[in-house]
């Protein structure tokens, strides 16, 4: 029932993309977003799209599962497109209906906006599909470490994030179990009006909250038992280390970003 949740989903694999350092992937992801917003015309978006397609092919993640992940976002994408289509300023008016006019520029804007969102989401998927949550938070912690100097509790944030990510599948599984158990007692979640349906959630939510608190308690005790005392002086089992492929990836990313930036801002392509 809940198995179609893709949040933080990781597709195990051994591809080059999978083996890149998580820091590389995180920073390249940021660069990619910057490039997306620097781009302006067909050429820059074509370059961005081809770049992403190459990465997807290299990662060997089945495209069908990427598309499935996009499904819940269609509504957002369509609304953004329609709003851009209707409310963009432009000279070349295609047709007018009442006070709303659709312009050629509006069409372009809508199209680019949709492409932008899709590329952005797909790129985010590539990051989470090819990087295990643990590596991802490790990378994030390492990247944010400089901010420790200004009092940002980086280790604690990373720990909270990895615990949260770690428990998503557990809680999904638990929810599934509770739903099954209540269904076995004849609970009906699919019929009735909104109020009835909301009420039908109580038999799921109460046990779920109780078990979440119980797990939190147990985890806290287990951490105490292993003398957890925060990040200070803590060493790591897996040290993050840049390899040559990471430097190559950085160069490619920066070249792409600069190229798209120049194409978009200078030449409007």
């Amino acid at each position: 029932m809940l198995s179609n949740i893709t949040l933080g989903q990781y597709f195990p694999g051994e591809s080059l993309i999978h083996r890149l350092d998580p820091r590389t992937k995180l920073l390249l992801f940021v660069l990619y977003i910057v490039a997306l917003f620097l781009g302006k015309g067909l050429v820059s978006y074509a370059i961005m799209a081809i770049f992403l397609i190459v990465i997807i092919v290299m990662s060997k993640v089945p495209p069908s599962s990427l598309l499935r992940g996009l499904k819940p976002l269609w509504i957002v994408i369509i609304i953004t497109g329609v709003l851009n289509l209707l409310f963009s300023q432009g000279q070349t008016v295609l047709f007018t209906w009442r006070r709303i006019s659709v312009t050629l520029e509006g069409c372009y804007n809508a199209g680019f906006m949709i492409v932008r969102i899709i590329l952005l989401v797909l790129c985010a998927f590539m990051l989470t599909y090819t990087t295990s949550p643990i590596l991802l938070t490790d990378g994030l912690e390492r990247l944010l470490r400089p901010f420790q100097k200004i009092g940002l509790p980086v280790h604690e944030l990373a720990m909270m994030m990895s615990i949260a990510l770690r428990f998503i599948p557990t809680l999904v599984e638990e929810t599934d179990k509770i739903i099954s158990a209540q269904k076995a007692r004849g609970a009906d979640f699919e019929s009735g009006n909104i109020l009835r349906r909301a009420k039908a959630l109580i038999p799921i939510l109460v046990p779920l909250f109780i078990s979440a608190f119980r797990r939190a308690d147990e985890l806290a005790i287990a951490m105490e038992c292993r003398c957890y005392h925060g990040g200070e002086g803590r060493t790591r089992l897996h040290q993050l280390k840049y390899a040559r492929k990471d430097y190559v990836a950085y160069v490619i990313g920066i070249v792409l970003c600069v190229a798209v930036g120049i194409l978009g801002r200078r030449f409007g392509l």
């Binding site: 099954s180 076995a184 007692r185 009906d188 109580i202 038999p203 109780i210």
Partner: peptide, 20 residues
């Protein structure tokens, strides 16, 4: 299927976690 749930009663593993 809805009827069947009452004819075939299923007690899950650790059923105490379904009390609400």
């Amino acid at each position: 299927i809805h009827q069947l749930r009452f004819q075939v009663g299923l007690v899950f593993q650790y059923p105490e976690y379904q009390l609400f």
